[in-house]
Simulated scan of single mutants.
Amino acid sequence: MGLIKEVLLLPFAPVRGSAWVMRELVREAERIHYDPAAIRAELARLEEQLDAGEITPEEFDRQEDELLDRLETATRASAAPDEWTT
């Protein structure tokens, strides 16, 4: 039965392969996006921009809140690693 199923589904192999690639790309993008070290580096870069006068304090606060939310999500996800790896 397995061989017949594989032969019948063979025309769909490129679609299945593409879906797998897309899942892997999304998984890697999420891993990078929620990497605590990367988030901390972005926070440091953001503070440097504020100190250099490249951004306003309001823009700093807005971006800092977004980064801290991501860091909190990453911290929670490290306690439950299957949160975004479905």
Rank of each mutant, 00 (worst) to 15 (best):
Q49H: 13
D35L: 14
A79I: 12
D51E: 10
L10S: 07
A19Y: 12
W84Y: 15
A44P: 00
A79C: 02
T75M: 05
I39S: 05
L43Y: 05
K5M: 05
A52V: 00
A44Q: 04
E42L: 09
L67H: 10
R16P: 01
D82E: 14
A80D: 05
W20R: 15
R62M: 02
D35V: 11
L68E: 14
E64D: 04
R31E: 12
E47V: 05
P11M: 12
E47P: 04
E66G: 00
G53H: 08
E24N: 11
A38I: 08
R70T: 04
L25N: 03
P14Q: 07
A79F: 03
E24Y: 08
G53C: 12
V7Y: 02
R16Y: 08
A74M: 08
V7H: 00
I4W: 00
T86I: 12
T75G: 00
P11R: 05
E72F: 05
T86W: 15
E72Q: 11
L3K: 13
P11S: 03
W84G: 00
A80Q: 05
R16W: 02
F12D: 04
R62C: 00
V15M: 07
A74D: 00
D82V: 09
K5Y: 07
L46S: 02
D82S: 10
E66Q: 15
F12H: 00
T75P: 00
E6K: 15
A13G: 01
R76P: 00
L71Y: 06
E28C: 04
D35A: 09
V26N: 10
D61Q: 08
D69Y: 00
P11Y: 03
M1D: 03
T73M: 12
W20C: 10
L67P: 02
G53N: 07
F12M: 15
A77Q: 03
M1L: 09
V26I: 15
V26L: 13
L68S: 07
E66I: 15
L3M: 08
E28K: 14
D65A: 14
L9A: 01
G17Q: 15
A38W: 03
V15L: 13
D35T: 07
T85K: 15
G2N: 07
T75V: 04
P14G: 02
E6H: 06
D51K: 14
Q63N: 15
Y34E: 06
A41L: 12
D69F: 08
D35W: 02
A79Q: 08
A38V: 11
Q49V: 08
L10W: 06
A41Y: 02
D35F: 08
R62P: 01
R62K: 13
E42S: 12
R45S: 11
W84M: 13
I32T: 06
I39A: 00
A29L: 10
A79W: 09
R27Q: 13
E48T: 15
I4E: 04
L67R: 12
L25V: 07
T56Y: 07
L8H: 07
P57T: 11
T73N: 02
K5I: 06
P36D: 04
T86E: 15
G17F: 06
E72W: 06
T75D: 01
